[in-house]
Amino acid sequence: MPGLQIDKLSMRFDLPNRTSVQALEDVSIDLKAGELLAVLGPSGCGKTTLLNIVAGFLAPTSGEITLNEKRVHGPGAERGMVFQQGALFEWMSVRENVGFGPRMKGMAEKPKREIVDHLLDVVGLQEFKEKAVYELSGGMQQRVALARCLANEPDVILMDEPLGALDALTREKMQGLVLKLWKETGKTIILITHSVEEALLLGERLIVMAPRPGRIHKEYNLPFAEMGVGQDLREVKKHPDFATTREEILSMIWDMEEEIMGGAAK
């Protein structure tokens, strides 16, 4: 079965003081190829740990991950990652950053340039390609990060709060871009976010996680990502279902936060 299967994943961190933290417990997700999954939850619910395990940066305590019927061991180019910030190589120009993956594979100069040029067109940075990345604004830097990830033709794109550090206006624009790229490339995407609105807008599927131990609390199938393709995202937000779902999830997360606070006080 193609797609990404996360099967009974558990992760325990042993601390030096002989206690341990159960970051994830029995998390299973079955993702079909081309689906966009948003993962939402209060801080400390293990969503970044989950992503790091899927990326292969962490080995889980138990459970396994299968991508296109192959078990995943360690990091690999078929799972691209977009980080929140600061993961671009500032000693390289925009063009070199985007071409990093193909260059590591030893691709010849000409096909590499074609890929890079095409992707710079897609993210709208053609005229900035010779600039240093630190000369660009935060939103443009994230466009470079997206293009760099796509240049490698990954099967799955993992996004760890990629828009978290952007201002509200840029963020809206970038949400539109993520949707557009998702539709045009047909990639499987896992998007971690702490913004309920963003999760609703972008997630075709949405998982709300609960903390201590990190686990799946509730799962949704949402129509908004489909509606958002080719439409103003602000129109989508006006949809009555959008507001109800948002309130439902917000109060769900509020309850969890309160539980944590209450637990800490006891």
Binding site: A55, G76, A77, F83, Q84, L88, F100, R148
Partner: peptide, 10 residues
């Protein structure tokens, strides 16, 4: 995150 990014770029 730079090292991770490079790993996941192959």
């Amino acid at each position: 995150s730079k090292v991770h990014a490079a790993y996941s770029l192959g």
